[in-house]
């Protein structure tokens, strides 16, 4: 399996330099700077509407900030989009799951889209690993079920399976614990623990606290 215990091949510091974002004449956040080291979990907290999702999208390179830069290593991500995108997995509010495809079909598309991601020589392995990944997130028995028949928690698990499959070193997760049962929460914590042990970076927004042993944990409160 390619998502084993071995450290990620290409890890680097992700940092924000004086990021600001404005929405409808209101500053969501202004001049925030931080630095996230490999093996760290960065927990973004804040009230509803405080800009958590916007910050995550800026860190993904999906949205532009009104000022400031996101750096990966020594260079801004704008200058190394393609390279940076090989390293990130993003699970957003909208989870990118097609309702009319089965669990397996959804994951197959995700696997093919992830083929250029880190350790792309394992691309064919990834397709073979669909079953193993589905077992890991507890969806193997639902393999042939249409996504619209899944519960909200199961959809969340399917979205998380994408991170495992792409084997990227930076996970950006928007409310990953929403709708998950206690087993699901434990699964996310276990995945994050393994991820950080492999020197991966996790940037997470959540209203709940995460119990992850051994990980370097940092909290940013946008409120």
């Amino acid at each position: 399996m390619d998502n084993s215990q071995t450290p990620y091949a290409d890890v680097n510091i992700v940092s924000a330099r004086k990021l600001s974002s404005e929405k409808q004449d209101r500053w969501l956040f202004k001049d925030i700077s931080f630095s996230i080291k490999p093996g760290q979990i960065f927990h973004i907290q804040g009230a509803n509407g405080s800009g958590k999702t916007t910050l995550l999208r800026i860190l993904c390179g999906l949205t532009r900030s009104d000022s400031g830069q996101v750096m990966w290593g020594d260079n801004p991500i704008d200058k190394q989009h393609d390279q940076y995108h090989t390293q990130i997995s993003y699970v957003g509010h909208t989870d990118g799951i097609k309702q009319d495809l089965t669990v397996e079909e959804n994951l197959h598309v995700a696997a093919v889209l992830a083929q250029g991601k880190q350790q792309n020589n394992h691309a064919s392995n990834k397709l073979a690993n669909l079953d193993a990944t589905l077992k890991q997130v507890g969806l193997y028995k639902k393999k042939l079920t249409f996504a619209h028949a899944l519960s909200a928690g199961q959809r969340r698990r399917l979205a998380l399976a994408r991170c495992l499959l792409s084997d990227t070193s930076i996970w950006i997760l928007d409310e990953p614990l929403t709708a998950l049962d206690s087993q699901g929460v434990a699964l996310v914590e276990e995945l994050l623990e393994t991820h950080t042990q492999r020197k991966g970076i996790a940037i997470v927004t959540s209203h709940q606290t995460l119990n992850i042993s051994g990980a370097h944990y940092e909290v940013l409160n946008l409120s």
């Binding site: 390179g61 993003y90 990118g96 799951i97």
Partner: peptide
């Protein structure tokens, strides 16, 4: 439209393809 609404489009854009 539907890819935009369910987030599939974002996934395509941040994929390296």
């Amino acid at each position: 439209r539907s890819d935009m609404e369910d987030g599939a489009l974002e996934q395509m854009i941040i994929s390296t393809q």
